[in-house]
Design a binder for these strands. Structure first.
Length: 500
DNA sequence: AGTGCAGTTGACTTT
DNA sequence: TAAAGTCAACTGCAC
């Protein structure tokens, strides 16, 4: 029997492993709930609940093809042992997974197990990430080629007489309660709906609205969790986007800008995951070694908790964190800001805040996440430190205060004018330290100190040569430090310059 | 109508 | 996907 192991590719459409396995013989579609994975510090109940909903839909889709999804709970190698003893395992099929260290080690165990049991294990390429990549040269063109290939159709399956097995609850897995009342709903149907409503109407203002937390929640595609857990394939999202781009060329310019911008972000998705594929250590280790040990190894628990609970005394920052906890989502800019404040203003080592955010994001994608966490902590060596000002961001991104007031209602008595800096309000003493905390850091002083420390490292001996090596290994060939300083010289001025 | 000046804007540089 | 600083050009206004 051809066992198709579903991991973070929970769909039947454009699923190469399923398609190829079905051409070889009878397919046993399998999902293994691995309790140890779900106990990892970057995983949370909201992830599992999203996956459980997606599994229910996948089970139905597979049933339509002829054989519903089989679900088992336990270690993967134990499940494989049982299948082998039952004579149900002629070959194992899966997609290559670029996950956290736990799934990386588990995959190595599975590979070793298959080798010793003499079971062929076929791992097929997942989205645009290349395993065993020798060089980043030509990577972007290769991505375009992969994404332009035809979608793999779902195959017909032979029915088997095997108990399907229940889908466990988060509590069955011993996961801590993780209330997320406005979490996106899992399942392919919801993903397809998000994609089509984005392309047909929600996306028109994408380019303009994506950075504001309130407008962005509507104008952003929101397909990210469906891509993370594989209910949608990157290829089908990319192709739908390109079809739409061709269609809207005649329409107004905001559609054109928005779709170009969205397409660009789809390219970046795999670009970042490729970094973790090429260097799995970045989950734990600084891209640039000179940034190791810069911050205290053990983060100050009080500050970490205040940050994670949305109680720093900076209203917009706290609103973003509280919104994230309740919805499982934040727009890109606000993700960068919350990470930036943890790493710079609060000077916390990036690993623990990174794990906390991973648990909060329904769309936690390890490759994107750890690349971004390090980028917003200034430890890559190839990006200049971008330190966000939580007051300025509030004024720029939530000028009316509607978003901030929704999530920080204790500031109801603070006038609009002072919402983002409540300590300046006449009635500050009535609120601060009573209903809402005083700021736990001075953002101007903290940003300056962090900037000086980060820039100090750049001046150390050997910094630049190592940074160039990182850029060469991981950097985009279209931008980055390699091309800086090589910009085209300015063209001739339009004005005549006469020595008159 | 031209001049001086404070304040604003935008491009560019530095951290 | 930053923010702050610098500098020159520009604007509005008083005289």
């Amino acid at each position: 029997m051809q066992v198709v192991w579903f991991k973070r590719d929970l769909r039947v459409q454009d699923h190469a492993a399923l398609h190829c396995a079905a051409r070889r013989g009878t397919v046993l579609p399998l999902y293994v709930v691995e309790p140890e994975l779900w106990r990892q510090p970057d995983h949370s109940a909201r992830h599992w609940e999203f996956v459980a909903e997606t599994l229910a839909g996948l089970r139905q889709d597979l049933a339509q093809l002829g054989q519903p999804l089989i679900i088992r709970v336990g270690d993967m190698t134990d499940v494989l042992n049982r299948l082998l003893q039952l004579g149900c395992l002629d070959a194992l099929w899966a997609h290559e997974e670029t996950g956290n260290n736990w799934t990386f080690q588990r995959d190595k165990k599975v590979i070793a197990w298959c080798r010793s049991a003499n079971v062929p294990f076929h791992q097929l390429q997942n989205h645009g990430v290349v395993r065993g990549l020798a060089s980043r040269n030509g990577w972007a063109d290769n991505w375009d080629r992969i994404m332009s290939r035809e979608l793999t159709p779902p195959p017909a399956l032979c029915p088997l007489n095997i108990a399907p097995g229940p889908i466990p609850d988060a509590s069955d897995l011993g996961l801590l309660p993780d209330p997320c009342p406005e979490r996106q709903v899992g399942g392919r149907l919801a993903g397809v709906e998000r994609l089509s409503s984005f392309l047909s109407h929600r996306g028109e203002t994408y380019q303009r609205a994506m950075s504001a937390p309130l407008a962005g929640a509507h104008a952003c595609s929101r397909v990210s969790p469906y891509l993370t857990w594989g209910a949608l394939s990157m290829r089908e999202v990319y192709q739908a986007c390109e079809r739409r781009r061709a269609e809207i060329r005649s329409k107004g310019s905001s559609w054109g800008r928005s779709m170009r911008s969205f397409s660009g972000r789809l390219h970046w998705h795999c670009h970042f995951i490729q970094k973790l594929e090429d260097e799995p250590e970045i989950e734990f280790t600084e891209f640039h070694p000179l940034y190791a040990g810069l911050r205290p190894e053990q983060p100050d628990q009080t500050r970490l908790d205040a940050w994670a609970n949305g109680e720093t005394g900076y209203p917009f920052l706290d609103a973003c964190m509280r919104s994230l906890r309740a919805t499982g989502w934040l727009n890109f800019r606000m993700r960068a800001m919350v990470m930036s404040t943890a790493s710079y203003h609060l000077w916390l080592d990036w690993r623990r805040p990174g794990q906390q955010l991973a648990r909060f994001f329904t769309d936690y994608e390890p490759g994107i996440h750890w690349s971004q966490v390090q980028m917003q902590s200034g430890t890559t060596g190839i990006n200049v430190a971008r330190i966000y000002n939580p007051v300025k961001q509030g004024i720029d991104q939530d000028p009316t205060g509607v978003f901030t007031r929704r999530w920080v209602p204790e500031l109801v008595k603070i006038p609009d004018q002072f919402l983002h800096e409540p300590w300046k309000a006449d009635n500050a003493a009535e609120v601060l330290g009573k209903l809402y905390p005083e700021p736990i850091f001075d953002h101007v002083v903290a940003a300056r100190e962090a900037r000086d420390k980060i820039w100090g490292v750049r001046k150390e001996a050997g910094f630049q040569s190592r940074a160039r090596a990182i850029q060469n290994k991981h950097g985009s060939r279209k931008s980055g430090i390699k091309n800086r300083g090589q910009r085209k010289p300015k063209g001739p001025s339009n004005q005549l310059e006469l020595p008159f």
